[in-house]
Design a protein around this nucleic acid. Structure first.
Lengths: 143, 143
DNA sequence: GCCGCTGTCTTGAATCAGTCAAGATTACGT
DNA sequence: ACGTAATCTTGACTGATTCAAGACAGCGGC
């Protein structure tokens, strides 16, 4: 988990001003992987007091654009954020409770990046989402 | 493209009542692959006259539950529907204009289905989304 | 250490896809 | 043709996200 100064360094490195909300949001994303905006807002407020809802949206967008966090949007879920960037990893999503876990792809660094027929598209990323049941929901499918 | 009676057969085969809106929606999904709900509503109204927005949502849900259509939700897009079901295929999405094309996966019928470490999840599907630029947007990136 | 510029945050309203609910209709088995 | 349960219509509502305008505050330069 990065320290306050690590976080500041990350922000400055991305040419972003160091502000209370930004430090808090980036820290929250590191501490709560795959959290949605609302959870992050809660964590931020617990950390630094009142922060507007809009600020969190703005900060998350800025961090995403700067490549400091990654936004993921599994079907049927609101946007979630994670701090693991720049490594090719994917996600398993529980169909029942929505829990998300990281998965390193089995078939190499850029799995399936060559589609069989690309229709002339210039493909730059292959995103894989695994669907199934998490351990808890496997035991009690309809809690 | 299925005929009216093909569509009726599909509906009956799924134990769904044959109604005007259902026939029209299922036909529209076949005719407009990857269309969003609103486009489908437009196509349906052009076909059979006034149909409520709610009916289209209901029908799409029923068809999806019955496995007659598949719902896809690329990040940053509204829900879209397609009639290709039961074959393992994936999608390329244009980052610029949102256009979607089908892609048969290069590495076999169920690509990457074995994640390197599944965290105890019971995985039943691997969904792959390729991101890039469609031919038109490759030429004029910021139209 | 102070100033100003510009980027960031606050406040408050708006949008948009999708859902909920209640009652009217209608397909379909008998 | 009839009755019933599924389906459709109407209309209100939710919840995530965005837009807009003005107040505020980092940070580079003096």
């Amino acid at each position: 988990m990065p320290t306050r100064s690590d976080v500041e360094r990350l922000l400055r490195g991305a040419a972003l001003r160091v502000t209370r909300p930004r430090v808090a949001v980036l820290t929250a994303v590191h501490e709560h992987p795959h959290a949605d905006t609302d959870s992050i807002l809660g964590a931020v407020r617990a950390d630094v007091g009142e922060v507007s809802h809009q600020a969190v949206y703005d900060v998350l967008r800025a961090l995403t654009a700067a490549g400091l966090v990654r936004r993921i949007e599994p079907a049927g879920s609101v946007a979630r954020y994670e701090s693991r960037v720049a490594d090719n990893h994917h996600h398993v999503v529980c169909r029942s409770c929505g829990a998300i876990a990281d998965v390193d792809c089995a078939v190499g660094y850029t799995p399936c990046l060559t589609a069989s027929h690309d229709h002339g598209y210039a493909i730059d990323e292959a995103e894989v989402t695994y669907w199934g049941l998490c351990p808890a929901c496997s035991i009690a499918p309809s809690s």
